[in-house]
Design a binder for these strands. Structure first.
Lengths: 204, 204
DNA sequence: CTTAATTTTGACCACTTGGTTAAACCGTTT
DNA sequence: AAACGGTTTAACCAAGTGGTCAAAATTAAG
């Protein structure tokens, strides 16, 4: 019997998230957002002047939710091995529970690449520092001299792609919801192992 | 000075590909397809009754172009190691030259999952046979007892994701077109090595 | 050449879209 | 109770949207 004390503005943003995440910018309808929030369509325009504005708000929210945790984990003082395990575990859980997010973000990056630079500053993401961090740790802790960028992209690919490809796995391989979740659960062990094995065998 | 002898229907389909690949189903406009093909909008309806039909034609074409080569490579009689090298090499080239394709397909799978089953038959894709093939080869040639599904998803992830994430790499990491192509070129060596190293170290 | 079939076009339509605007609502302050 | 600010609504609009249709242009057949 909890009464959620949310402002109308917040309710609209929540509704906009639902609609944009599932249908994308072009597929989303201002009317549907209003309905989902239980308010008049004009109210959506009252708080967020137009479709672009409210989309940007939703996109920023989604982007931050992913980048924030990445920063937190990779700039912690964990050993590299733990970072990978923590990262994969967290992202597979988070993404599989928000399976529309990654594709939504990728589409957003394709269609509105301009809006991003500002957000990078806002989220304090510094690619160079991230690369340095990975290079340093793989060198000192694992004795490797690998290209940190390839390593990072590999980590992201192995964590994100299986979630983005969810409908592919469902339809082509006929996985049920239960089987899929079990698959994601397995990957929390399989993927870190896979990555660390791959690095272990690198020619120094 | 070659005169391309294409039927109007083919010209329309080509135009539809361009538009749908870039803008997706909701973003695409029948008028834009007609303009791109240099014909009247009604002609598009004349050959493909409605938007759904022409989208399906485009989607099938895209899907086949990816699945066909996958089948060809994985059911060839190459050793597993060569299959991986061949597959990665081919897909990174093909996808980076058609960088809108993978995201287009993923979006299509999300929004129109029904249409796919028929195409699976049409493309003779048999997931079970594919899994058996991978299981058999990893066992006999590499002496491994790994889950072939995780292996396949890892291969796909490492090949496809970096292309899907192209705008991410461009905007966040500030890669130029040239740098990106060099990056993809590197990956044709890095990724097979990464995968084979990972498998090599697997506990039997 | 005439006719018939096919291909292409322009005009049109019902409907949806994002967005505007003026009026109504409502709690607070005078 | 009147006046005021922020909030919410209904009615409306111009610009598209996918789709239709009958007529024109082109090609094929007799």
């Amino acid at each position: 019997m909890e009464i959620p004390i949310t402002t109308t503005e917040e309710r609209i943003l929540e509704a906009a998230k639902k609609v944009f995440h599932c249908k994308g910018f072009d597929g989303a309808r201002m009317q549907e957002i209003a309905d989902e929030a239980g308010v008049n369509k004009s109210l959506v325009h009252y708080y967020y002047r137009n479709k672009d504005n409210i989309f940007q708000a939703v996109f920023e929210d989604a982007f931050s939710s992913l980048i924030g945790k990445l920063n937190e984990i990779f700039f912690s003082d964990l050993p590299f091995t733990s970072k990978i395990e923590t990262f994969i575990g967290y992202y597979i859980t988070f993404l599989s529970q928000n399976s529309y997010l990654p594709l939504f973000i990728l589409n957003g990056l394709y269609s509105k690449p301009e809006q991003i630079k500002a957000m990078l500053l806002k989220n304090h993401l510094s690619p160079e520092r991230l690369m340095d961090q990975i290079r340093k740790q793989t060198r000192e802790e694992l004795g490797l001299d690998v290209d940190p960028f390839h390593v990072l992209i590999n980590i992201l690919a192995l964590s994100i792609f299986p979630v983005v490809a969810k409908p592919l796995i469902e339809t082509i391989f006929g996985f049920s919801e239960v089987q899929l979740n079990q698959f994601y659960e397995e990957r929390k062990k399989v993927v870190p192992e896979f990555i660390l094995n791959a690095l272990k065998n690198y020619e120094k």
